[in-house]
Design a protein around this nucleic acid. Sequence first.
RNA 1: GGUCGUGUAGCCCAACGGCAGAGGCAACCGUCUCAGAAACGGUUCAGUGCAGGUUCGAAUCCUGCCACGACUACCA
Length: 970
Amino acid sequence: MQTPCARTEPLQSGSVTLCVMPHPYRYTAELANEIELRWQASWEEQQAYRQPNPGQAGFDATRPRYYVLDMFPYPSGAGLHVGHPEGYTATDILARYKRMRGFNVLHPMGWDAYGLPAEQYAIQTGVHPAITTRRAIDTFRRQLKRFGFSYDWSREFGTIDDDYYRWTQWIFLRIYNAWFDTRKDKARPITELVEEAENGHLGIGAEGELVWIDVDESAAPPAGVRLWDELDGDTRRAFINDQRLAYVGEPVVNWCPKLGTALANEEVIDGRSERGGHPVIRKPLKQWLFRITAYADRLLAGLESVDWPESTRIQQTEWIGRSEGADIDFKLTDGDAFLRVYTTRPDTVFGATFMVVAPEHPVLQDVEREEVRAYIDAAKGRSEVERMETKKKTGVDSGLTAINPATGETIPIWVADYVLMGYGHGAIMAVPGGDERDHEFAQQYDLPIVTVVLHPDGSAPEGCYPGEGIAVRSCGSSVSLDGLETPDAKRRIIDWLEETGAGRGKVNTRLRDWLFSRQRYWGEPFPIVWDEDGRHHAVGEDTLPVRPPEMEDFHPAESDDPRPLLAKARDWVQTTAGAAGVADLAADAAVTRETNTMPGWAGSCWYYLRYADPHNDERFVGEEAERYWTGGHGVDLYIGGAEHAVLHLLYARFWHMALYDLGFVSSPEPFGKLFHQGMITSHAYQRPDKSLVPIDQVEKRNEVEEQDDRYIETATGGEVKQIVAKMSKSLKNVINPDDIIEEYGADTFRLYEMYMGALADSKPWNTRDTSGMFRFLQRVWRLAVDEETGETRSKRTGLPRHSPEGRRRDGDACETNDAVERALHRAIAKTGADIEKLHFNTGIAAMIEFVNAAGKHHVTAEQLDRFVRILAPFAPHIAEELWHRLGHEDSVVGTTWPEFDESLLVDTTVDVAVQIMGKVRAHIQVAHDTDKKTLEATALAHERIQELIDGKTVRKVIVVPGRLVNIVAS
RNA sequence: GGUCGUGUAGCCCAACGGCAGAGGCAACCGUCUCAGAAACGGUUCAGUGCAGGUUCGAAUCCUGCCACGACUACCA
């Protein structure tokens, strides 16, 4: 956008450079930038968006609350891209609108700042991640402020702030000091577990598991169950540690040698790390885990109670992957041991002709066969990605055999890596007649295939049939399923399994306990120390936070042998029980700090709670603030990307539920309403072979008039196709928001992003289209301000609009201006309703309609007042400027949303279509409230309709008042 | 392969089962200019991806295909 005098290129003749300034007070980019910066400074100075908490000065308890939250960003060195402000603008509009509607609005912003990318960037550049992260935060903050978002910046914090992660560690300790009571289906403090045990309400089973004892029965505890007072200290301790919601396990993890860390399943995509795309191998490792699986049913049930996108609820449901089936024990032919499997189709046990175990399965420990050892070693060294690259299934016969408890037959046990150690028991009964994978494997290795389920109609299936049907060939010495339909067969076989002790019904989930340790530097240290006997202890709460050690070198030792980075900080690792605040050890006892760190997700699990009371140093959030802002149903509206559908949103729900159970928060779910904004894409070009071409290597040609544009790749001259593609550096199609703001201003940017399309849809960025929004703001400006003089002078009266006299006369002059008034009421109604529905694009269109209509008539200052107020949530800077130019002293931020009159929303006369058999044949002009009977009569009386139905019988007439009349005649 | 979503004018997008158009971009024609740009005024442009079905009436609901996108992927 050029400003006056900007275009001063010398004329070709070399004559004098002319500078024409036709509209010195037009709304230009320069003016927009000037206005925006001025008001941003003013708002900041006035603390216009500061929202007091209950109990604080200025808090109005009579107002309802509205907590509208953005997913906070992970600040990268590259700064904001155009995707960030999309959701932020949406929430800003809502926040501003709700304030005008009389709500106390909590609208905060902060920084998700711990995590791998910052550390990797630090490794590349040699600069400490604390420094690069602070820099990135400063850039993000500066950029966000330039959009004029109405955040209460006094509540800002980063997850790396001492007084934030202090509480992250504190919450970890709450979870560490809790266990899950399956009877009450909730978490309780560990102290209550000990109480229950001391009171004899529970005992410890043969495998160390918790066994409830019904005291009313006054019967002896079940065989093999030991009571608390029979146990020594170590056993008690081990039992307690086994029950903790945060516990130490040694699972097979996704080890990424390149990153030098273990990753959660969710961070591994196609066998590669989500960050960086490095190969990942499987290896057992001692790790901290969260018992999120205990919450599987509640995480599922809670999804019913929240207003979330259906697709996200489905994704979480599938991620949790609850299934019902049975555990079945197959006795090994040698020795007394059993091989336990989980199956969802216990009814097909008669068709289990072999078994398969994962290469990591312990049953293979003593197998010495050379090809088995070789297969296990090969599988170990293969990353997930390599395992998947070979589409064909592989495996070897272990030489072990087991007895099928249903048929009594001896069947072989194979090893194959299509069976995963991490699900079920790492072993399956293979039913090649009913499972595609087993079928493929059986064919490949020539193993027997038996059909044990017929189609529901009784016909025999060909090949593999995984569906339900009628059991057949399923008759053993003590149980028969023959003739039963699948659900009945399942019930019968589970009963039989339980009677004979060969198995039991079982609910399983795909969800596994959450691996919470990382072997990295840039994360929250665990508030845990280890004593010389290898036992872990919580550090004293008054010693929090446990700060990360000062370190110079955070290069990972790229290795297959995991060693946490923090172990290198010897002085930090070695401490005493006294210094760490561990009460149950002698103060001078040597202890070592836990050297793992928490994953990037930790900080984002509870940040929405901290915003409610960010400076509280007594508690992670004050009780009253928590109850006011998140009590009941949690955050009122949470907007962010759909890519967090299962990770962040599941983890945060888990933390929240644990805190809820322990009485620290007052809502069962953290986010009452969730919305995902769509992705903003860009353009790129595609060769016929589908490869992509960066936009700077293509030119547009239009050789023939009246024909579509063609795109030619400059280097080859070949024709390419314009397509929609993600923004990426390599395609050179990334849009920088700073550039757009410079060219048009933040108000135009905000309007354009909201106008591009529905918030939830993905849509391509078209810089060219931004000028439409800019012109709209220019027209708005012109409604109030004279472009020649810069004055807000009424064209009708010639008096300044901000003067009382001018306003009065202005109003008098326009009392008859019905069209503008009606257009304004429509705009107020439509825009308000659309904001509530997050339909910002159509809301803006309603304002454009008003401005287009108003431009043709005279608008009074009072009408402009109202219009400026509905514009204010969308384009706050220009609205504030005009508001003041219209003579107001206060800020438009503190005004109310204008009222509208329902009766002015419809025109007095409407055009009603008359259809015959659904085809429009005529139009009639009637009063908008004409009743059905009159409409029907008027339509039938229409001359043209008369002609068309002449000689036909009118069978039916459908009348939709105010819209149409449809005549069914033949 | 599975799940979810989206296909409407040259482009971006609207349309409680009721006359396919709210709006923006582009194009074209005017106004203003010595001229151009900007701005302003106006005009053109589709029968809704394809094939069926339900209905007085379908872009909208149902079924099956096609294209694109997101997510997910040997979960027994």
